[in-house]
Design a protein around this nucleic acid. Structure first.
Length: 292
DNA sequence: CGACCTGCCTTTAGACCCAA
DNA sequence: TTGGGTCTAAAGGCAGGTCG
């Protein structure tokens, strides 16, 4: 069933009975053709059009470079979708609207919640499926990366079965390129297991160690610093490692790894990004950054 | 005797192959 | 071309051996 006036899915729209007749927040339910356009319910489209026109006027008078307010999602992603206000319908459409539906993988039945916040120039929207917010697809977190950085992100060693959503990937990217002396070897994402936390056994995969050898000399055993960045807290624990003769893995010395976990208050099931950096004195640090 | 290191076994993901 | 089965390599975990 479709509203005969505005073409929105569902029964005919019910007029709003607010004090001023202008709702500050409203839902738009999407249909199966939502990737092309989103019709605005007839009971709010006039007030939305007035709201947008008001913003255009303010932007013009203030001499803003951009006159047309964009759709601004909860993740602060801006989409300059075209708003068409016609006699019989109002809709958002165009390439930017299509991009939004692709980025959020929107489909029929999903809701776009508008919040008319006069303190913001753009139109605040949030995407929902049932009672849950729809996040952008995980790959959207990588879209602004250079080719080289994207290649590095894709090379990461990830634990089996661990699924990263958009926000996890954003945290991953931020953490990966945060360290100023980041060596550029293969990033390693690891979930702390009972073997790590109870037996203090920490092994870095062979592939990561091999990629590290491209940048620095990696002897069979040597001193290494274990570093953790936890908000304001910066933990540095001097340690050592040895390479497994057979499998080539880097095994961190147990005693110091235990001290490191205690100092950084890390626990089982914590998810880490593990990278390496070369310090000023040419020594190597293993950097742990908590992702989850 | 205890701590730690090394090697082996199990599990699992990805590669590869073949048939429908 | 695709889906299912098989093979293989690597990660994870365990346990035995060694050394202080």
């Amino acid at each position: 069933m479709v509203c005969p006036l505005c073409r929105c899915p569902g029964a005919p729209c019910v007029p709003f009975a607010g004090d001023h007749g202008v709702p500050e927040a409203f839902d738009v339910v999407l249909d199966e053709n939502c990737f092309r356009r989103m019709y605005i319910p007839c009971n709010v489209r006039a007030s939305l059009a007035a709201y947008i026109q008001e913003h255009r006027n303010v932007a013009q008078m203030s001499g803003y470079k951009r006159i047309e307010p964009a759709l601004l999602t909860f993740e602060s992603r801006s989409y300059a979708a075209v708003f068409k206000h016609r006699g019989r319908y109002s809709k958002f459409c165009g390439a930017a609207w299509n991009e939004l539906t692709q980025d959020y993988a929107l489909s029929a039945g999903d809701r776009v919640v508008f919040t008319l916040d006069h303190s913001v120039f753009d139109l605040k929207v949030e995407t929902y499926r049932g009672g849950h917010r729809i996040f952008p697809t995980p790959d959207c977190a990588f879209e602004k990366l250079t080719d080289a950085k994207y290649q590095l992100v894709c090379s990461a060693v990830m634990p089996r079965g661990l699924q990263f959503n958009y926000h996890d990937n954003q945290e991953f990217v931020t953490s990966l390129f945060r360290t100023s002396f980041f060596l550029g070897c293969m990033p390693y994402v690891h979930v702390l297991t009972p073997t790590n936390t109870e037996k203090f056994l920490m092994k870095i995969p062979k592939a990561v160690v091999s990629s590290l050898k491209v940048f620095i000399d990696v002897p069979m055993s040597a001193n290494v610093c274990l570093e953790a960045f936890k908000g304001e807290l910066h933990v540095i624990t001097p340690s050592s490692y040895s390479l497994g003769k057979k499998d080539g893995r880097m095994v961190i010395a147990r005693m110091t790894f235990n001290q490191f976990l205690a100092a950084a208050s890390y626990a089982k099931d914590n998810v880490f990004l593990i990278t390496f950096k070369e310090c000023r004195d040419r020594s190597v640090s293993t950097v742990f950054q908590q992702l989850k």
